[in-house]
Design a protein around this nucleic acid. Structure first.
Length: 491
RNA sequence: CGGGGUGUGGCGCAGUUGGCUAGCGCACUUGCAUGGGGUGCAAGGGGUCGGAAGUUCGAGUCUUCUCACCCCGACCA
């Protein structure tokens, strides 16, 4: 097979970029740091959206939409929050252009300066809490369970397709509750939704945990996360859920009268996942032949490629192929019959392999004669011949098997890349030679975490939920530690 | 914002100490053959060499300035 792109071994990040481009997922745009998500890549995001959206609705949430522009003054209301985002905000200062008096083109019209600058949302807490103030009077107005699908902008220095771009698509849930307990419960509930989605749709095992102070969301009391492991041994945060306490309620004066007649601040959460998940799926499952997609997220689950030598055979084979397509579609499968005569079968085989289509059915004159088809699995690259009888059911089972196999492979990989380190030397050795998750003791201070980050580039990914308490000594400072936490180099 | 690098058809690149008509691979178009793992042959189309100024009989090649992008750092989902 012709190999014209990098392997994971040769150059992992080039391999990743090659897949994004060759699988037709996205490309760089004329705007620095921003990408164009192409139809095939966007279709994956749409699959993610529809699955997640249903899960949000099933847990009582509704969608709404808030402005992309946020008055600058809103940002100064919550001190930690400003601190966290100030350095990467795009600012709108004018609202009009005019013809350049010196020649061609247009220039900013200086007379059209905004009274107050507008920030392009890096996240929507401030505009949303400013709005919620008017929605809440009484405990009877609570809870508010709202989600929005939106784009946000964070002016990043270094960008990578899907993983970090200046503009990205995401969903952000923002909820308001009467009690602390209820808000905390919501935070955990949505973390569970994310973990469920990651494992059952993306086929990626995740660790649930809480962030250390350093890694916590600006403005949150607690940030929970799901952490996934990529094939190069680096961790990737795949979703976050924040318990915001009453920070934003105080900053935006969101109060309600309780059952007891007392005026109280509401309790808040926010939670989100982004198009970064597309990057996670790519890096978790793909191989040196291209993209590998879990069937539940694949825009095309099965592709049918007809094989023929002449016009007569073409018609005969395509007729059969179309019957098969319709039968599978009626079963709810996403099927494509590629009957283009402009490309050869071998070319198509490679094309769909690059694109990660889970199953490929080849059907030729011999198959029509024998009532068979050849089915190739993308995950194992195995080919076998199947009888056409009851094909939709067989295909459905194969897709389930692929979904399970991908998850199991990813889980085995993570298990093999999970280590325990008890000394600083051991810790460094694992980081440099193996990568992956490292359980190690930590004295609990931000200073130590910072030092470790500076010296090794590894960060605390999370403190796992339900973590075992265990006496020990901090890997770096040697001070007393109550538990092991998870370290890794991360995206 | 520091350090390094690259700009030549759509993409990837070559182009020697300045030299005459700027090449190659992929892609594209047409024709014929081919068709169960990226088909072969033949014939075509497409480039003011990132931009500006300068040196020279002559600049893709040398000089100066400028712009853009990429990589490595600080920052980050």
């Amino acid at each position: 097979m012709a190999k014209d792109f990098s392997t994971r071994e040769e150059n992992y990040s080039k391999w990743y970029n090659d897949i994004v481009q060759r699988a037709d997922l996205a490309e760089n745009s004329a705007v620095r740091g921003c990408m164009v998500i192409k139809p095939y890549g966007y279709a994956i995001w749409e699959r993610m959206q529809s699955a997640l959206d249903k899960m949000f609705k099933d847990t009582g949430h509704s969608n709404a939409y808030f402005p992309i522009f946020i008055p600058k003054s809103f940002f100064s209301k919550e001190a930690d929050h400003v601190e966290g985002f100030a350095k990467e905000c795009a600012v709108v200062t004018h609202y009009r252009l005019k013809n350049d008096p010196d020649g061609k083109g247009v220039v900013v019209d200086d007379t059209a300066k905004l009274e107050e600058e507008l920030i392009i949302r890096p996240t929507s807490e401030t505009i949303i809490w400013d709005t919620y103030r008017n929605w809440v009077q009484s405990y009877r107005d609570l809870p508010i369970l709202v989600n929005q699908w939106a784009n946000v902008v964070r002016w990043e220095m270094r960008t990578r397709m899907f993983l970090r771009t200046a503009e990205f698509l995401w969903q952000e849930g923002h909820t308001a509750h009467a009690t602390k307990e209820e808000a905390i419960e919501e935070t955990h509930k949505m973390l569970d939704v994310y973990a469920d989605f990651a494992e059952n749709y993306m086929a990626i095992p995740v660790l649930k945990g809480v962030k250390s102070e350093n890694e916590r969301f600006a403005g949150a009391l607690d940030t929970y996360c799901i952490e996934a492991l990529m094939q190069d041994g680096k961790a990737l945060q795949a979703g976050t859920s924040h318990f915001l306490g009453q920070n934003f309620a105080r900053a935006f004066d969101v109060k309600f009268t309780s059952k007891e007649g007392k005026l109280e601040y509401v309790w808040a959460t926010s939670w989100g996942v982004s198009t970064r998940l597309v990057g996670a799926v790519i890096m978790a499952h793909s191989d040196d032949n291209g993209l590998v997609l879990p069937p539940k997220l694949a825009p095309i689950q099965v592709v049918i490629v007809p094989i023929y030598k002449n016009e007569k055979q073409y018609r005969m084979v395509c007729e059969k192929a179309d019957e098969i397509r319709i039968a599978m579609q009626n079963k709810g499968l996403r099927v494509k019959l590629d009957d283009r005569d402009t490309h050869k079968p071998g070319w198509k085989f490679n094309e769909y392999e690059f694109k990660g289509v889970p199953l490929r059915i080849a059907i030729g004159p011999r198959d029509v004669e024998n009532d068979t088809v050849e089915i190739a699995r993308r995950d194992t690259l195995e080919k076998s011949v199947y009888q056409q009888q009851d094909l939709p059911n067989k295909v459905e089972h194969l897709l389930e098997a692929i979904q399970d196999n991908l998850f199991q492979k990813a889980l085995n990989f993570r298990d093999a890349k999970t280590f325990y380190a008890d000394t600083w030397e051991e810790f460094n050795e694992i980081l440099d030679e193996k990568g992956g998750f490292i359980y190690a003791h930590w004295d609990g201070t931000a200073e130590t975490e910072q030092k470790i980050k500076e010296e090794t580039k590894a960060t605390i990914r999370c403190i796992p939920l339900g973590n075992k308490k265990q006496e020990g000594k901090c890997i770096y400072s040697g001070k007393a530690s109550a538990q092991r936490v998870i370290f890794a180099r991360a995206y």
